[in-house]
Simulated assay, not measured.
Amino acid sequence: MTTPALNTAVEAIMREASERAIVPRYRTLAACDIDNKAADDVVTVADRDAEAMLTERLAALLPEAAVVGEEAVFADPSVMERLKQGLCWIVDPLDGTNNFAAGKPPFGVLVALADRGDILGGWILDCLTGRFCRAAPKGGAWIDGTRVVARTTGEDPPVAAISTVFLDEAARAKVCTHIAPHYRLVDIPRCAAEQYPRLVLGTNDISVFNRTLPWDHAAGVLFLNEAGGKAARPDGSPYRVDEYERRDLIGASSPALWDQFAELVANMPG
C-alpha cells in the first residue's frame, strides 16, 4: 500500500511534528510540562502536542484510516479495538519520553500503517540526528534514502541489549544464569526508535522486549525483518499489532542469531 508519494508525505508530517512540537522543548521543559502516567513512565506536553499534530495530518492523508495513538489509548483504552477493525495509523508521538524528559538522547517518532493486524508500512525518525528509517513488506528497509541490510556486530560473544526492569525476581535470575553467560550484555536505550536501528547497523545483535505495545514495535519489527534481521515472538510466530495483549518479542541482527537465542530461552528451566 505504501508508495513513494506516501513515504514522502509521512516523512514530512513526522519531521514537522518533531521540529514544531518536540525539539524546541528539548531541555526546556518546566516541571508543569511533565506528568506521571505510571511508575517510571512519564508524559510531556511535547508528547501530547506531537500526537495531536500527527493525528490530524495522518488522518487527512488517508481519511479511510483510523488513528491509534499512544496518548489516545491512555485516555481511552477502547481505541485499541481499531487495530482489529481495519486500516489504521499507529502513532508513538515521542518514543523515549523518559530520556527526553531527562534531557538526554535518544528519542524519536514512530509511525506505522496496519490493516487488521498486518503491518503495511513503518517509519522511524530520530529527532536529534534527523535519521529517517522506513520499510514496507517486500520493499526492503531504507535509511535516509539508501537501502540497508542488517549486519551483526561480529563480536564473540554477541552483544545483547536486555532489560530486566519489567521482570520479576525469578525471571531476572534465569536471565542472569542461563542467558547472560552467552552474551555481552549492554544497556537498552529505552527507545525503540533507536533499538531497532541498532540491530540493523551492527551495534547490537540481540534485543529482548517484554512489553510489545504496537506503537513501540510495529514500525521497528517491519524495518528489522525487511533489512534481513529477524523479529518474532519467542515461539517463532510473527508479531501482529492486533495481538497487543501478548508479551515478549525477540529481535536479532540475523536469523541465525535469533535461532540461537530462542533456543536458549526455550531450554531455560520452567
Rank of each mutant, 00 (worst) to 15 (best):
D95C: 02
R172E: 12
G96S: 05
V265T: 06
D40I: 10
T164A: 12
G69N: 05
L83V: 07
D95T: 12
A231T: 00
E169T: 12
A171W: 13
G69Y: 04
I22K: 07
L224M: 05
D35I: 05
A180V: 12
L185T: 03
N267A: 08
A101L: 03
N98G: 10
V79Q: 10
A102D: 01
A256I: 07
I250E: 04
L83Q: 02
A38T: 13
M268K: 03
T129W: 09
P77F: 12
A65K: 07
V23W: 03
L125C: 09
A5H: 04
P157G: 02
D259F: 10
R184V: 09
G130P: 11
D47N: 11
P181S: 05
R15S: 03
V165W: 02
A17K: 04
V149G: 04
Q85P: 12
E243C: 11
P93A: 03
A5E: 14
V23E: 02
V68E: 04
N210D: 14
A38V: 12
D115Q: 06
Y244I: 14
F74M: 11
V111I: 04
P234L: 11
P255W: 07
Q195K: 13
F209Y: 15
N99F: 02
G86L: 01
I188H: 04
L6K: 06
A141S: 00
R147D: 09
K104D: 01
A171F: 09
T44W: 00
L167F: 04
H182T: 04
K84L: 09
P158A: 08
A252F: 06
A65P: 12
V265C: 05
R246I: 03
A38W: 07
V175D: 10
Q85G: 13
H182Y: 12
L110A: 02
K174N: 08
R82N: 11
A12D: 11
T8E: 15
L128K: 10
F107H: 09
I188C: 14
L264D: 09
A266L: 01
I143F: 14
D242V: 06
D92Y: 08
R20N: 13
C88Y: 03
G228D: 13
E81Y: 06
C133L: 10
R246P: 01
A112M: 02
